[in-house]
Design a protein around this nucleic acid. Structure first.
Lengths: 338, 338
DNA sequence: GCTGGCACTCGAACGGACAGAGTGCCAGGC
DNA sequence: GCCTGGCACTCTGTCCGTTCGAGTGCCAGC
C-alpha cells in the first residue's frame, strides 16, 4: 500500500496536470503544494508511483502525467464529488423549469450539461420498458388504415401506421380502444404482452385478424423502442481536448455518431450511483483517450434512463461528477412533476 | 469577359486543388490537363485570374488556390451537377425504403447524405406550416386534463398537455373532436386559425372556456413548431477539413450546435432549385470557410423542408450537388408514398 | 528516511544552409 | 498580337547542429 504522502503526491500531480495540461515535475510540485518535503523526496515518491503504474513519463527527462490507473485511484480514493455552488444550482433549476415537453426537457438537459462541464454531454431518453402506459390511442385514417399512438408516463409519444388485413368498423375500433386502455393504462411496458394476449378472442371472427395485427404492432413498438434514443451536445467542447486534439478527435467524433456505441457506453454504467470509466476502461477503442461519467436518472426512485458526459481523461473529475449528479437529480424532479 | 482558355485554367485549378488540397502551380497544371499551351502562358492567364479576384496566392512563389469568387464562377458557369451512378441510386433507394416512421426517414437521410458526400449533413424536419392536417386527436387523461395530438400528412406527430379551466364531459369531448376534424383535416396549417375561429360559439356556455383553451393550445402548437427542428450528422467528416482543420473546426462545430444558425442557413436557400453558398457568402462568421449546399424537398411538387450539407469551400461541388439533389428527390418520394 | 548536489538525458527553440517549387518578366518567334 | 523558352528572384519547408532548460536518477551525508 502506498504511504499517505505518496497518495498526496499523486493527487497533486493529477490536479496540476488537469489544470496545466503539461507534464508536472518534482520542483514545480513542491512549489505549488505544501508537501513539506523537498523535490528530491518527491522524485523518489514519483519513481515508486511510476513503478506501480499510476503515473508515466512521456519521455525521459520530462515531468510525469497520470495514467488511467492513476486517475482511477484518484477518483476512487482521493477525490470527492464537488457539490455545485448555489448560484449554479439555481441556474440549473431555472433553465430546466422552462421546458414545455419531454423533447424540450431532454434538449435543455443536454445543453445544460455540456455548458456546465464544458464537455460533450449525452442524454438518453427515458426508457420505454421501464415506463408505464398513460394512454393508447387508435385512430382510423382510412377504412383499412389505423394509426396507433402510445403515450408514456414520462410524456413520450410513439406512433405507428397499421395496414389492416380487413376493414375495421368504428364500433369495433372504439371497443378495442376501450379494452386496450382498460387493460394496460398504468401498467409497465414489460407487462403489456401478457395483459393483451387473449384480447383477439373476444372479438368477432372477422375482426380478429385486425386486432392481432394491431397488437403485434403495439408489441413491436415496445421492442423496437427498447433500442433507446439519445441525443448529444457540446461537441465543440472537443476542441478543448488539448494539444494533441487533432489526432484524438476523429475517433471520438466517430464513436459519438454511433448511437449503438453510446447506448452501450451508458448501458455499462451501473444502475444506481455514478459510474466513471477512464480511458482504456472503455470498451470502444475510439474512446480510449476519453473518460465517461454517467449516472441514471428517473422520475421516482428508479432510474428510467441515463445521462453523462464524455471528455478527455484529463478532466476535472470532482467538478464533472458534481455537475452530472446535480443535473440528473433536477431532471428527475422535473419528470416527476409533469 | 474572360477568354475560354482562362476559364478552362480556372476549372483546372479548382479541380486540382479540390483533389490535392495543395496550391497548384503552372507547371503541374499543364502536365495534368491538356491545355495545349505552355506553363508560361498559363502563368499569364493566372496573373489575369488573380487580378480579377478568382484565385489567390497564399504567399509569393506558391501555387494558386481558388478564392470564394473563383468557386462561385466555377459553380455557376463551369461545373454541372454530376448525376450519381446507378449503383449509388439503388443504394439510396434501398436504404431509405427500410424506414419505418418519419423519425427514421429523417435519421436515415442524414446518415445517408453524410456518407455519400463525406461531409456534414443537415436535414430539416418537414415543416408544419406548409403541411396539412391528417388528424387531430383529443384524449381525456383526467377530468380536467386533456392531451392534444396533432398528426400531419408527413407523418409528424405533435402532442401537448392541456389543463382545462373546467371539467369537460365525454360527450362534449367527442363533439369537439369530431367538429375539429371535420373542419381541419386535409387543410393547411396556415389556414387552420380562421377555420376554427367560431367553434367555441357552438358549445354550451360552460364548455366554451375549455374549447377556447384547446384551440389556443392548438394554434400555439402551430406557431411554436414553426421553429423547425432539424438534425445533423457526419460531424466526424469535419476532420477531413484539411491541414488547417484544427483552427477551422471549432467555429464550425459551434455554429452547427446552434439550431437557430442552421435553420437560418437553410432558410436562406431559395425555395426551388439548389442553393450553394460559398465561404463568405454565408452570413454566419463561423462558417466563412465552409460552403453550404442546400435544396428543398417535399412529398409533392412543393418543398416542405430543406436539407443539405456543410463542408469546406474546397469541396467537390458537382458531386456534392448531385448527391444532395438525388437524396432530396428520393426522400420526397418516400414521403409521398407514406 | 530525507536532503542537497551532481551528472546526464532529452526535447524545444533557434539559426543557417540548401533544395525545390513557383513566379514575373523579357526577348524572340509564329 | 499572342505564345514560348529562358532566367533571375523569392519564397517555404526541411535538415542539421547548437544551445538552453527542465527534469531525472543516483549517491553520499545528515
Amino acid at each position: 500500500m502506498l504511504s499517505e504522502r505518496r497518495l498526496e503526491v499523486l493527487r497533486a500531480i493529477v490536479q496540476d496536470y488537469v489544470g496545466t495540461e503539461e507534464p508536472v515535475g518534482s520542483k514545480a510540485l513542491t512549489e505549488r503544494h505544501n508537501l513539506g518535503v523537498s523535490p528530491a523526496t518527491v522524485r523518489n515518491d514519483m519513481a515508486v508511483l511510476e513503478d506501480e503504474g499510476f503515473i508515466a513519463q512521456p519521455h525521459t527527462s520530462a515531468g510525469r502525467i497520470p495514467t488511467d490507473r492513476g486517475y482511477r485511484l484518484f477518483v476512487d480514493k482521493l477525490a470527492g464529488v464537488k457539490p455545485l455552488s448555489s448560484p449554479e444550482r439555481r441556474a440549473i433549476q431555472n433553465f430546466l423549469d422552462g421546458a414545455v415537453d419531454l423533447d424540450d426537457v431532454v434538449g435543455r438537459t443536454v445543453r445544460l450539461l455540456a455548458q456546465l462541464t464544458r464537455q460533450v454531454a449525452v442524454v438518453q431518453y427515458p426508457s420505454l420498458t421501464r415506463s408505464t402506459v398513460r394512454h393508447v390511442e387508435l385512430l382510423s385514417l382510412a377504412p383499412a388504415r389505423l394509426m396507433l399512438v402510445l403515450i408514456t408516463d414520462t410524456g413520450r409519444v410513439e406512433q405507428r401506421m397499421i395496414d389492416c388485413p380487413a376493414p375495421f368498423g368504428d364500433t369495433a375500433l372504439a371497443d378495442l380502444r376501450a379494452r386496450l386502455n382498460s387493460r394496460v393504462v398504468g401498467r409497465r411496458f414489460a407487462d403489456v404482452p401478457q395483459l393483451v394476449q387473449d384480447l383477439p378472442e373476444s372479438f368477432e371472427s372477422e375482426d380478429r385478424a385486425t386486432v392481432s395485427t394491431v397488437l403485434s404492432v403495439l408489441l413491436e413498438t415496445l421492442v423496437e423502442e427498447t433500442e433507446e434514443r439519445l441525443i448529444i451536445g457540446g461537441t465543440s467542447n472537443l476542441t478543448r481536448f488539448g494539444h494533441d486534439f487533432p489526432v484524438m478527435i476523429r475517433p471520438v467524433l466517430e464513436a459519438l455518431e454511433e448511437q449503438v456505441v453510446l447506448l452501450k457506453l451508458l448501458g455499462e454504467a451501473t444502475d444506481s450511483g455514478m459510474t466513471v470509466r477512464i480511458g482504456h476502461e472503455n470498451a470502444h477503442e475510439g474512446l480510449n483517450s476519453t473518460s465517461v461519467v454517467a449516472v441514471g436518472y428517473g422520475s421516482g426512485d428508479e432510474a428510467v434512463a441515463k445521462l453523462g458526459v464524455v471528455g478527455p481523461t484529463r478532466m476535472d473529475y470532482p467538478g464533472t461528477m458534481g455537475a452530472v449528479r446535480a443535473v440528473a437529480r433536477y431532471v428527475g424532479q422535473i419528470l416527476a412533476e409533469s
